[in-house]
Design a protein around this nucleic acid. Structure first.
Lengths: 196, 196
DNA sequence: AACAATACGGAACACTGTTCCGCTTTTGCA
DNA sequence: TGCAAAAGCGGAACAGTGTTCCGTATTGTT
């Protein structure tokens, strides 16, 4: 895997080769280190692995969260993209349930990501924005379909659910996480408008 | 308020007066600083306010969480103690709902406490233990009563609920928090065993 | 080939939590 | 009461963090 960065050459200008090298090295190193040790890893470990100075990292990623979103962008998109696929293959309620599981597994797999999302630390400020932007439309589609089918209520804001599930998730206890997904789905079903 | 520490003189021995002085100063300073700036405040701020050295703090509270539990002990107990009171005054389901609100408000009021509870940081290890020990019995009573009345299902572990609510709470958005409490209560009602 | 613009590396800084130790206070005992 | 031993104290010192800054190296342009 050549690991080319997806970063756009700002304003049409070609990217300097040394910039591309550092960027690729940083993203590659960060991906490996995040996977192994979580997103809370010290910056020095990333720069060392990338063979790059601290200044280089901060010029490209002024906020820590910029690096994280860059690293996880593809996987976030993939998770969001599964919503339409599930909606096509399953009944509305079942599609919703499956995607919620998929979502929890995604967050749980990224060590420390959950804490970063909800830390309130200003270094992670831009992180929820990207997640919201991608996941809300995906979930909205599933909720609308299930509500139209009369399976669930329609007055719960999608972002509420993402926020709530994203907080609840315990990466070390998938069984507990699963029980809570079911409990919340049941909560959605409690006041379903019958028929469609 | 004289702010005498509640710490027991270990093994019956009387407490040295200088120990009592440092302990009281630390607990008083920590309480004020936690209130104003949250539990994540640097230790130096606490020791400075208490007029005490760092060594003194660490001898009395080897873990950061020891200081936090000591400071919040009374309030935790007060919150737990409201469960029986509510159970006596309201219908089972209403008592449960009210206590859950009370619980969320308690956690939300303590800046940074929520993050500390779920941070996974070893410095906060002993924190969930105390909370669990106090809150689980309180909540169990309410859940059992509501289940016996046929209002809610009976297969949800109390600690699951505490954990889930404790994570969901957003101190800056009480409305959202309230919606989630209601959603979870509805989830509990969805599979209620009818009658009692 | 020479120059300007850009980016690089890593030392330096500021701020954490935590440990360690010389000194002071208190206690127990004669 | 006087005095040695024990216990506790304060704060300097250490280690590890994120972040900035700047002299040097690389690249694009003429």
């Amino acid at each position: 895997m050549t690991n080319r960065t997806t970063e756009e050459p700002a304003a049409g200008r070609r990217m300097r080769p040394d910039v591309r090298r550092s960027l690729d090295a940083l993203l590659g190193a960060a991906a490996e280190v995040f996977e192994a040790e979580g997103v809370d890893v010290p910056v020095r470990r990333i720069t060392a692995k990338a063979g790059v100075g601290a200044g280089t990292l901060y010029r490209h990623f002024p906020q820590r969260s910029d690096l994280i979103t860059a690293v996880f962008r593809n996987e976030v998109d993939a998770c969001a993209a599964e919503a339409p696929a599930l909606a096509a293959r399953y009944e509305p309620l079942e599609a919703l349930r499956r995607w919620l599981y998929r979502f929890t597994r995604f967050i749980a797999a990224k060590q420390g990501l959950k804490a970063a999302l909800h830390s309130g630390d200003s270094a992670y400020e831009s992180l929820p924005g990207y997640f919201r932007e991608r996941f809300v439309p995906a979930l909205t589609q599933l909720l609308d379909a299930a509500a139209a089918a009369g399976d669930i209520r329609s007055d719960v804001p999608p972002y509420d659910l993402l926020q709530a599930l994203g907080s609840i998730i315990d990466p070390d206890d998938p069984a507990y996480t699963g029980r809570m997904v079911e409990l919340i789905v049941d909560g959605l079903r409690y006041r379903a408008a019958p028929g469609a």
